[in-house]
């Protein structure tokens, strides 16, 4: 477990960091958005575009595009957790991951050791899928729906 940490951060300069921080905030919806953001950051439109391409190619950024709110489209998400007996863990993983509504699933070090996200086309389906998972696994599914989001984003130390 002494894997060498990623070196991407070491080759980022101040402008790269400023770009990473700024691009997590909304892009202006106007014909030349990168020119407008470049003005904020003190770099040219062409340089901002070139650097953003590099940040995507080196995977410092995973994506640059619209963030869709599936809930606004009628879809629903719910964080769920289960306390899965250790001896049944692998079998339960297989069952839970087999549900196409399970988007992410993490093992965590807690009595509630399995945490997954359900993504469905409508809110009513969440409870039904959770019930089907309970029936299939014999483990209680606790639902932790988002009640409020406090979002600002993640910043790279400048």
């Amino acid at each position: 477990m002494t894997a060498k940490p990623s070196t991407a951060i070491e080759v980022l300069d101040d402008l790269d960091r400023a770009i990473i921080n700024r691009l997590q905030l909304p892009l202006p919806i106007e014909p030349r958005p990168f020119a407008a953001v470049g003005l904020e950051l003190g770099c040219s439109e062409a340089e901002l575009i070139a650097r953003t391409k590099t940040l995507l190619e080196t995977a410092a950024l995973t994506r640059f595009g619209p963030f869709i709110d599936a809930e606004a489209l009628g879809g629903a998400f719910c964080l769920c957790a289960m306390a899965v007996p250790a001896e049944r863990f692998d079998a339960v993983v297989e069952i839970v991951n087999g549900f196409e509504e399970v988007a992410h699933n993490y093992e965590r070090d807690h009595a509630l050791n399995m945490w997954f996200v359900l993504a469905t086309d409508d809110p009513g389906t969440i409870a039904r899928v959770a019930q089907r998972i309970e029936d299939a696994t014999g483990c209680e599914v606790l639902l932790f729906p988002k009640e409020r989001e406090y979002f600002i984003g993640f910043k790279v130390a400048a």
Binding site: T58, P66, F67
Partner: peptide, 15 residues
């Protein structure tokens, strides 16, 4: 429906 047009950072790659 769209929250914003923006970048998603790769926390792992960013150290």
């Amino acid at each position: 429906v769209i929250r914003r047009i923006a970048a998603a950072p790769n926390h792992y790659k960013l150290g």
